[in-house]
Design a protein around this nucleic acid. Structure first.
Lengths: 197, 197
DNA sequence: AGATTACTTGACTCCATAGTCAAGAAATGT
DNA sequence: ACATTTCTTGACTATGGAGTCAAGTAATCT
């Protein structure tokens, strides 16, 4: 509850160093272990005490907000960009889902964001909404083209992502290849009915 | 670490009453809230102190073992029986999966058992293995009949159950109807390729 | 260099849950 | 009805993580 950083015109040198160090440490630690990692580990990685994190950032949530963009936003942008480059509505929709699901596998932190395993924050909500809206558009288009089952709803799409996150957290050990193979089953189930691969 | 009950020839009257009361309370509490509910709640429901539970049963795991059969075994037997009554291999396989998935929705405790969210115990392991073996048999038969994708492995089948458990725990609010509708997507994805409903 | 102010620290509180145990309560045997 | 034995209790310890704060340390200003 000290200074969440807006009023101070300039931090002292050591404080500036620490803010940066903590950000980097948080990036590292969260990237590899997800957003639920205890702050003590971030502190240790930054060579700083837990108290310092709280003084510099104010709360766990604020620290997450400070790194979530670097952690996830770019990945989402990449996905959107890659998908936009495709033409076929079915390919666009399936590629989108597949890339999201693989992102969830590859980056525990991204998974935590997409599945909201954490105190809500404006940043996070904005990110999720953005991805959601994009996905819904793709869904509509694929359905309009008759490629995806018409009874698949936008809410179902959200669930497909949420569930994957929970599934991943629960079944940790699976290889990426197995994981991807299983995703294929899921995609098949969403296609409009008789249609060659 | 007192007496896990085998040596004593006969408990005192109040102890016998309590054992039964605790079992009933555990059944109730676990049934509605899953096997991860704190033992204090079972104690409260039984009108007994937590210490008594430990004295009578020895550990959390032992208490679970003492009720898991009543909690789950019969449901599994029902499923197996209902499925055995069917003829078509595809119908058998899909009915089995669907019933398992709905059991997971209907009974949090059964879900906890099937997904092993708890200290391993012989009882539990036995139950899971039994269901697993049955499912694998159905899978083989459905694949032999050409009704289910040949690249679906027994391990995949296990994952389908495990994942559903995690998904359920994570996405609590969904209605049974929505849940069932989504299961249909999953089933579709497992079918051998061009085949009418 | 000394005074001032900003910053850091780690020991502390708080919460929730598993599991334990000495002391008191209650059933049983005679 | 009392001695004996069994049982119950609730306060206690332990664990692990979030968040706080008084006291000590170090940058900065003059």
């Amino acid at each position: 509850m000290t200074h969440p950083r807006p009023p101070q015109p300039r931090l002292r040198a050591d404080a500036r160093r620490n803010v940066e160090g903590i950000r980097q440490a948080a990036l590292d630690v969260f990237r590899t272990s997800g957003l639920t990692t205890p702050l003590d580990e971030v502190a240790k990685a930054a060579g700083v005490s837990k108290g310092t994190i709280y003084h510099r950032f104010g709360s766990r949530r604020a620290l997450i907000d400070a790194v979530v963009d670097d952690l996830v936003a770019e990945r989402l942008r990449d996905i959107i960009e890659a998908v936009e480059a495709l033409d076929d509505p079915l390919a666009r929709f399936e590629d989108y889902l597949l890339r999201m699901w693989l992102l969830q596998y590859d980056e525990p932190a991204a998974n935590d964001v997409l599945t909201r395993v954490l105190p809500d924050s404006v940043q996070l909500t904005t990110l999720c909404d953005k991805a959601n809206r994009f996905g819904r558009r793709l869904l509509e288009e694929a359905q309009a083209a008759g490629a995806i089952r018409p009874d698949l709803t936008p809410a179902d799409l959200t669930y497909l992502i949420l569930e994957r996150g929970a599934a991943l957290r629960a079944c940790a050990g699976q290889s990426r290849a197995d994981y991807a193979r299983r995703l294929d089953f899921l995609l098949h189930g969403l296609r409009s009915w008789p249609r060659p691969a």
